[in-house]
Simulated assay, not measured.
Amino acid sequence: MKKSLAITALALTISFSAAQAETLNVGMSGGYFPFTFVKLDVLQGFEVDFINAIAAETGDEVNFVTMSFSGLVGALETGRIDTIANQITITPERQAKFAFSQPYVFDGAQVVVKAGNEDTIASVEDLSGKTVAVNLGSNFEQLLSALPNADEITIKTYESNIAQDTALGRVDAFVMDRVSSAQLIAQSPLPLALAGKPFSEIRNALPFRNDDEGTALRDRIDAAITTLQENGTLTEISEKWFGADISVAE
């Protein structure tokens, strides 16, 4: 009798756990090395490892949905995905629309130029009179537009080839986060270099729809992020991809 009750209790526990598990539909571009990219037909990168670590904590399944970066916000708004893991920067405008998790990446905006031109752009003031490329849908266009000399900067948006056009001199520079820029330069044969120091702190987090269901999911994911921070998993993932811990503010 006791054995029968134990088996029944175990079955109920398994059934309850299965009922609680969800499928997280996570959007990403799959084209932003080393955060999210495809190699040998395998989606990988910092964001992929990060989301898989969260799912290991929550017990959820993960369905990665890849699309162009510019379409990710619309997919979140319409419910096609539950969140975006693609270096989404917290901004006042985005906070007004979405419920954000705690930050898990701390970075800064960085100017990148063709190698040999580093001295021509030592600071953002030197961007005056220049054509500067940014990724379409990223926060860097907004950052540049907020500069005191914004009226003197020609901003060009790109879906791809941003690094190639800079190396070929078709644009004077591009702006990306410093972490990705340094990794891109290290991995690419293109003649590129960092110009000046980073400007404007960047805090990346996971956005969720700002409704009861979205905020409840955010809270559950946030608890998992805290666990990953406390047990060192987030630091391990960061050091794997960047050789440094980008999950804490300097």
Rank of each mutant, 00 (worst) to 15 (best):
F199I: 07
A173V: 05
F100M: 13
I155P: 06
A55W: 04
R209S: 01
A21M: 06
F33P: 05
E125D: 14
L12N: 07
G196N: 07
D49R: 01
S180K: 02
D107N: 13
D212H: 06
S17W: 05
E22F: 01
A109L: 06
K156M: 14
R94V: 11
A193V: 03
K197C: 00
N135G: 15
T23V: 12
S17Y: 05
D177P: 03
G232Q: 03
L234K: 11
S29V: 00
T91H: 07
A195R: 01
A75Q: 10
N161S: 14
A85T: 03
G59H: 02
K3W: 10
V171W: 01
L10K: 07
A173T: 02
A56I: 03
I153T: 06
R94L: 14
I185W: 00
K156H: 12
R170Y: 10
L143Q: 15
I84W: 07
I84N: 00
D222F: 02
A115S: 15
L190D: 05
A109E: 04
Y158E: 01
L43T: 04
E230A: 15
E57S: 08
T226K: 14
T13N: 08
F64R: 11
G31I: 07
N161L: 14
E125M: 12
I162C: 08
R203Q: 15
A249D: 15
S247F: 07
E125V: 10
A56E: 14
S180A: 15
R203I: 03
E93V: 11
A11Q: 06
D107A: 12
I155T: 11
